Amino acid sequence: MREGSTYTRHFHVETRQHEILGMDLGEGVPRRALMLGMLLFLVWTGGLLALFGMPGRFTLGLYTLPPIFVATVGTHPSRRYERRWRIAEWVIAARYRLWGHRPVICGGRVTAHRSEWISRRARWGARAEDLARTPLAGPAALVIGAEGDADTVPASAPPVTLAARCHLYGPDHLYRATARRKKKETA
Rank of each mutant, 00 (worst) to 15 (best):
A140H: 03
P55V: 09
F52H: 07
W117C: 06
R16H: 10
M23Q: 09
H10F: 13
F52M: 03
A177R: 06
R31S: 15
R80D: 07
T178W: 12
I87A: 04
V91S: 01
A126F: 15
T6V: 14
S5W: 06
P77Q: 01
R83N: 08
M35H: 13
T161F: 08
E82R: 12
W124N: 01
G74M: 00
D130R: 12
L142Y: 14
Y96H: 14
M54V: 09
S115P: 02
L174H: 09
F11G: 03
Y7C: 04
L48W: 10
G145Y: 01
S78F: 05
H113C: 01
L49D: 02
R97M: 15
Y169R: 07
L136R: 04
G46N: 05
Y96F: 04
A122K: 10
E129Q: 07
H173Y: 13
L51E: 13
M38E: 12
T59P: 04
F69C: 07
L51G: 01
R102T: 15
L39A: 15
F11T: 05
G170N: 03
T6R: 13
L60C: 03
P66E: 00
I68S: 06
D130E: 14
V104H: 02
G37E: 10
A155Y: 02
W44H: 15
S119T: 14
S115E: 14
G125C: 11
E129M: 08
L34R: 02
P135N: 04
